[in-house]
């Protein structure tokens, strides 16, 4: 279930959105400890990240600036970025 309504963004939300928007590499256990792996190590290229970023923006109604997303290297960094934007969202 999406946690969009509750205003938080968890690693499971990210896993779900990655799978929906970009699939998952067969050699990677996406359900394992992935937070500090790079997206490259997880088999995701720049297109996959763009698609993921766009899905997050739509679902959570936030804006992720171009430079912010392209600077993100790991799931943890992306989750932190989304959390910051959610916190900054007017309630």
């Amino acid at each position: 279930m999406s946690t969009a309504q509750t205003g938080s963004f968890t690693d499971d939300d990210l896993r779900r959105i990655l799978r929906e928007g970009a699939g998952s590499d067969e050699s990677v256990d996406l359900d394992g400890d992935i937070l500090d792996s790079t997206f490259e190590e997880l088999g995701y290229d720049s297109l996959a990240l763009l698609e993921t970023g766009s899905r997050i923006e739509r679902e959570y109604q936030i804006t992720l600036e171009d430079d912010a997303v392209s600077g993100v290297r790991t799931p943890r960094e992306l989750i932190d970025l989304v959390q910051q934007r959610l916190a900054a969202r007017p309630s």
Binding site: R19, E20, G21, A22, G23, S24, D25, E26, G43, L47, A48, E51
Partner: peptide
């Protein structure tokens, strides 16, 4: 096919 190819 690899899962990564399906959405695209």
């Amino acid at each position: 096919l690899p899962s990564r190819l399906l959405p695209q």
